[in-house]
Write a protein that binds this DNA or RNA. Structure first.
Lengths: 342, 342
DNA sequence: ATTACAAATGCAAGCGCTTGCATAAAATAA
DNA sequence: TTATTTTATGCAAGCGCTTGCATTTGTAAT
């Protein structure tokens, strides 16, 4: 194995020596401190460039007691919603000079707890977080609040943790979707709901229920199925519903992926879409455009949520007044071919 | 605004004082140094727990000159291939006690360059990277190689940068896909290729060409279109091909997303799939199962690539002999309804 | 010219942890 | 018991940067 070229890193001391000035002056010059003359600033920067100096963020962080790192904890990167959120997070963070360290919990509470410890050890300046569907106890965030490290939460949030919350109006999303189906003439609208331990899904269920009620449709218990929204759950729901004497003529799926599966399952069960059955899902994926029939959806503003979460967080870090403790965001109804005028 | 509770962080000195021993002993005890007696180790750990001590990774990194952070630079998180790669990366990294900091380049060379500087400032212990499609010059990686910081590349790699490379056999992927169509009876197979500046796509094109040749099919220039694989490019390709006197009866798409669009465009142009036209794409997305007809694909092992990349990288970090400079990975042919026996 | 003040730079401590080396304590050998 | 190891702990420097305060230099006011 070849010898490693152990080039020592260039430090501010090297620059200082080169110019016969003190390291503190170099540090200040590089940070554009007002007390340093333009002349020396230029000299210092030139030499820095020459020597290939690059600030050691680790050392800087230690002495400033500030890492310029934002920690992100999300359930999983694979979902398009979170991918978009991540993009928004990254963008705003970078634009403000923050680096981002990301962990996914895979919807496991234990992993969420572990990740908070990691973030704490890394001494992140702030935390952006979307909770697991199962997270009940939020004691693992106490470390941060106790130290004054802000925690911004989006989508799946807990009001037991102080800090900005970015949520979408899930009630309205479901209400809109349901009413859309009703307006198309659906009389028997069903809902595949998510776990009741998550406020997101409870709100959606409420929106669904209220839309029915406001439109004088009965809420039949067999039309409201609650599950973990796995692939199997979605298939089971379709099987159950399609064996009913009164099959539903409209389905509101609580998630993008379950909507996709419901649609596929119904289709392969011989149901004509959308003539016999209209489907709409809460949450949009790129895929929805490509399936046949293309799948209507209420789009959730993932990118914007990520973006605002970091914006608010950074305000907190700077001890600026944060915009609000709760932010509601607009949602978009994407009407495609899976929902059909009856 | 409420006063911030400025609880000072607990340090090893606090533990030391509490026990009337020196900070070095505390440090060693917490690190399970062999020179420390079991008795004191236990005492130290107990007090640490009590006080809620958590190692300050920043300070530790500075003094050890090692951050335990792996930097990841990828084109975009949105694609399922990269999302899977990321999962693999995360998993292995975490299992080995490394944190991960992630940046996306959005396929911009300039951003890639910027990101390397960030990674350098952050003093990552190693770098996992998938290059932009356009990256030609790789001088921005010199900083790392000069300092002996390993750089592992996957998928879109450059052999001009030392370090482990994890690639998939793109030639074989395309060859297999093409031959699959030929075996089904396709006589006029076309290929929408990616940019020629990327080895990945060149290899795929070669595989396509060779498969034709080996099977005694002519390579007609109008059947080989090269592009950036944008949505528009894919639509254009379909339009061109469908206006040919001799329309192709098989298409190999160089990417998952272009395959999806080609299929949709062909369908809406009235082409019967798969009776008139078989389609297969290089790269699989979840969506491929849901479209009608479901879209055949050669699956790329994103998760495994990310996983091996980090595995190799960590070996490098530990100065262990790395498995190989090039790793070829198996690929899986997923035959669905878009490719059809003629 | 003398004092007063502002501008520019240097000194030195400190951020929290690690680690080579010295030292003290305990255990073993002579 | 004394010399010799072995085992356990402490000392102090150092990682690279920041920053309050002291100091020097230059400039304006008296």
């Amino acid at each position: 194995m070849a010898l490693k070229e152990q080039k020592r890193e260039i430090t501010i001391n090297d620059i200082a020596k080169e110019l016969n000035i003190s390291p503190s002056t170099v540090s200040r010059a590089l940070n554009d401190n007002a007390k340093i003359s333009e002349a020396t600033k230029e000299k210092v920067k030139a030499v820095a460039q020459d020597l290939g100096y690059e600030l050691n963020l680790v050392a800087s962080s230690l002495s400033k007691n500030k890492t310029n790192v934002i920690g992100v904890i999300i359930p999983n990167i694979g979902s398009q919603f979170f991918a978009k959120a991540l993009s928004g997070i990254q963008e705003v963070a970078r634009a403000n000079g923050y680096n981002v360290i990301i962990c996914q919990t895979n919807e496991s509470v234990q992993q969420e707890v572990d990740m908070t410890r990691v973030m704490n050890s890394a001494r992140v300046d702030g935390l952006v977080c979307c909770l697991t569907m199962e997270t009940k106890d939020v004691g693992h965030f106490d470390v941060f609040t106790k130290k004054g490290i802000p925690v911004a939460m989006f989508d799946r949030v807990s009001y037991a943790v102080p800090g900005p919350k970015i949520v979408v109006d899930n009630y309205e999303a479901a209400y809109t979707a349901t009413e859309h189906l009703i307006n198309l003439g659906c009389k028997r609208v069903a809902h595949l709901a998510g776990t009741t331990s998550s406020k997101v899904f409870c709100d959606r269920t409420e929106g669904f229920k209220d839309a029915l009620q406001k439109n004088d449709l009965p809420l039949l218990p067999q039309y409201l199925l609650s599950s973990d929204l796995t692939e199997q759950d979605a298939r089971d729901a379709v099987r159950i519903w399609m064996n009913l004497p009164d099959k539903p003529d409209g389905i509101v799926a609580a998630s993008a992926s379950s909507g996709l599966i419901i649609s596929a399952a119904a289709k392969s069960a011989g149901v004509r879409l959308p003539e016999d059955l209209s489907i709409i899902s809460l949450g949009n994926e790129r895929c929805n455009e490509f399936v046949t029939p293309s799948l209507s959806a209420v789009d959730m503003p993932g990118y914007d949520m990520g973006k605002s979460a970091v914006e608010q967080l950074i305000k907190c870090i700077k001890s600026e007044k944060v915009d609000s403790s709760i932010t509601l965001k607009p949602i978009q109804l994407l009407i495609r071919n899976s929902s059909f005028k009856h």
